[in-house]
Amino acid sequence: MHDQDRRSPSAGESGEHLAPVSYLPWVGSSDPRARSTAEDDVAAASDATGDEPEETGAERDERIDRLVVNRLRRSSLSVAEVRAVLVEHGLDDGEVEDWLERYERLGYLDDARLAEQVVHMQAVRRGRGSSAVITELTRRGIDGEVAHSAVAAIDHDAEVGNAVAVAERRARQLGGLDRAVAERRLTAFLMRRGYPSDVVREAVASALPRRPS
């Protein structure tokens, strides 16, 4: 396989900037007239035989590459997610590794960068705790060491601040409850959000301050 210069795609819907993406060089001519002529030839052959022409290796590569590229344009993918797409579409182990190596080398796939994006999205924008972020990274097939390294970058004070903000919003719905009941429910809620126990205690104490006796 030979490298070609690539063009930069637009950012994905989530606002995260992806590496430049275009179709792989082995998938046919860039000349639209040549492509049109080839398509006419295929159509003519189909009409003559009455059957759909068998897909060539180059046509298969183009189809799969278009699928992967379209998904990368919509959102970032992990190496594991792209591997699953390639396997699903019939590439053997050697072909899969060749395609993955190329996508990584050209900067289209980067699990460390993706892990940082997931941490920001889950922790900062969605108010989830570190254990919930680890679960999401694992679900997306991010290597454990890479995942824990990304989550370790979450500052403790920042995580407490996120938890307090989440707890205060939730506490507004618990105003009519006995304090002990409200504490239990708020604690359980924050634990489900993936916050560690020490962060939960600080957040609950802040969101449900004790009334003076």
Rank of each mutant, 00 (worst) to 15 (best):
E13S: 05
A165H: 07
R35E: 01
R102H: 06
S29N: 02
L137T: 07
S30G: 08
R35Y: 00
V151S: 02
E101F: 08
E39L: 02
H156A: 13
T37C: 13
V68P: 06
E145T: 08
V85F: 15
H2K: 11
S149C: 04
R35Q: 01
G107Q: 02
H2A: 11
P212Y: 07
A132H: 14
V199T: 09
L18F: 06
W26H: 10
A152Y: 12
I64T: 06
A38K: 08
L72A: 04
D41F: 14
M191E: 15
A180T: 05
D31K: 06
S14D: 02
D155S: 02
V118G: 14
L208E: 03
M1C: 09
V68F: 07
E54C: 05
G90V: 01
R211N: 06
S46E: 15
S197H: 07
A171V: 04
V164T: 02
L186P: 01
R66C: 11
V79T: 06
A152D: 12
R83G: 00
S78D: 05
R169S: 13
E62K: 09
E55F: 00
F189N: 13
R83Y: 00
L86C: 00
A171C: 11
A58C: 05
E159N: 01
S76H: 12
V164C: 00
R6A: 05
A11W: 12
E101I: 04
A80D: 04
H89G: 08
Q173N: 10
T187M: 00
S206A: 11
L186F: 00
E168A: 11
E62Q: 09
L190R: 14
R105M: 10
R126P: 03
G57H: 14
A203W: 14
A132N: 11
V146Q: 00
V69D: 11
E145D: 14
S75W: 03
R73D: 03
A203P: 13
H120E: 04
D5S: 07
E104R: 11
L186R: 00
A44Q: 03
P212V: 03
P209V: 14
A147Y: 11
T187K: 01
Y108V: 04
E97C: 05
G28A: 06
M191V: 08
V42L: 05
R83D: 01
D3L: 13
A84Y: 09
A171I: 03
S76L: 09
A43L: 03
